[in-house]
Design a protein around this nucleic acid. Structure first.
Lengths: 256, 256
DNA sequence: GAGTGGTCTAGACCACACG
DNA sequence: GTGTGGTCTAGACCACTCT
């Protein structure tokens, strides 16, 4: 094209675009404001729509934008800090303070890695409790709690065999166990189809997978696999009586 | 095309492809093995290269693949568990057990959010110590440690003004402070150009950003912003004397 | 039905690694 | 130089939401 481009940088267009957009977002847009549509934006910047989309994808990954099919692209609010409890006392609290909402409980085979952590036979079915975590009216996480039958013996068959009622009764039994410790890991993943639906995202959306192993004196009592929306969440770990201090400041620190 | 597709699923091609590839990886490929190139793969599956790439990108995000320009696509080893220390004692240890390698130390203005956490004026320069973390011969994280001058008073100007020597002297001074607690958060980000270089990734690569605030009785003594490679790392948090148990099992649990 | 973002195509050229 | 993944284009059609 034009020869006016002395800036023959070795920087990809989408990367440069992302920077420009990011700055525009800071200065010219308010949270919740809706951006021009992708075709217009692409035209305005003189790039193909695919290139523009590559920039938008990055910004969405960083929690700066929110895109919804059929609606548009909006400026995202700062990520919400979500406390990943280190607190022993309410590890499986069905009505816990942190708004975990039990959906149902079924018996199913645990995935191989989970079975390995539980120390159970991969072929043995375990209780699988499904929960959703809400924060500020938004679903931020979906969890599968794997509980070996041995952790919750004599769970009466009289009670509802599934549904929230059943889930709560499993959690209640679990809650009575003395928790000795836990073991946690965080990694990047992509949302399975069912998780995506609960989280109001498309399948494959980036999520932070928090795997927690709860153990008692007898060994591993349960394993939780919680998937948090990576676009909207910042996981916080309170280590030492650290109060939930308000860093309302955006945690934006990426982009070159 | 053909009408043989009774499977007129509403599933995107790239998603289905990803599933197929994922299964193929499990059964037909060994770790480190090199895949056919993208053009061949795309042809083999009868899709455009862009579509094939969308599937590969997802698999790379999930830590199943590793792609390197000019080289090829290989099967990635399971993610390494990287301990994010909750240990007070060696929080700023220059020669710590966890292989943090100090690179240099400079004076610079901290980003606004960091300055807010430090409680310093955003215009005031602070010490910025740059460190790299190696695990199993691989760079897994790059860190910027922001230390207000007030935390390390009387740092002699006689010592090297920059470089690893300087970095170590800042860390040494810091290490002598009594640490009272820390406060940590984890979120998804994308690698800045300089981080990407240290981590042997392209700019924009997904990273887990671990922000740690170290505080003493006097307030916040330092803030660390560490970016971990999201593709190869699983962050582990030992909560309760929990030994670094070997879950050699892959932590693959995504994909529908 | 109109407008949005999501998927897909079939090309092209570029930057990089390696022999 | 050759082959790889990375970027980019200019289209097309689809799925969804809103009115």
């Amino acid at each position: 094209m034009g020869t006016t481009q002395l800036e023959s940088v070795q920087e990809p267009k989408y990367w440069h675009l992302k920077t420009v957009l990011s700055e525009a977002l800071d200065s010219d847009f308010a949270v919740g404001e809706i951006l021009p549509n992708e075709r217009d934006l692409a035209a305005r910047f003189g790039v193909a729509r695919a290139t523009l989309r590559q920039a938008l994808e990055q910004l969405e990954l960083e929690g700066r934008l929110q895109r919804r099919r059929g609606v548009g692209t909006t400026v995202a609010p700062p990520r919400v800090g979500v406390a990943v409890s280190t607190d022993q006392r309410e590890w499986a609290d069905g009505v816990g303070s942190e708004a975990w909402q039990p959906l149902d409980s079924t018996m199913a085979k645990a995935p191989a890695p989970v079975a390995a952590m539980l120390g159970t036979d991969p072929a043995d079915p375990v209780h699988v409790v499904r929960r959703i975590r809400n924060t500020q009216g938004q679903a931020v996480a979906a969890e599968l709690l794997y509980v070996p039958a041995s952790s919750v013996p004599d769970l009466s068959a009289i009670e509802a065999p599934s549904g929230p009622v059943r889930a709560r009764s499993v959690l209640r039994k679990l809650h009575r166990l003395g928790l000795q410790g836990q073991d946690r890991s965080v990694e990047l993943g992509s949302a399975r189809a069912d998780d995506a639906k609960e989280l109001d995202r498309l399948p494959g959306a980036p999520v932070l997978v928090v795997t927690t192993r709860y153990f008692t004196a007898d060994g591993t009592a349960a394993v939780s696999v919680a998937t948090y929306r990576a676009d909207t969440c910042r996981l916080t770990f309170g280590d030492s009586g650290a109060l939930e201090i308000s860093h309302d400041e955006q945690s934006e620190r990426q982009a070159s």
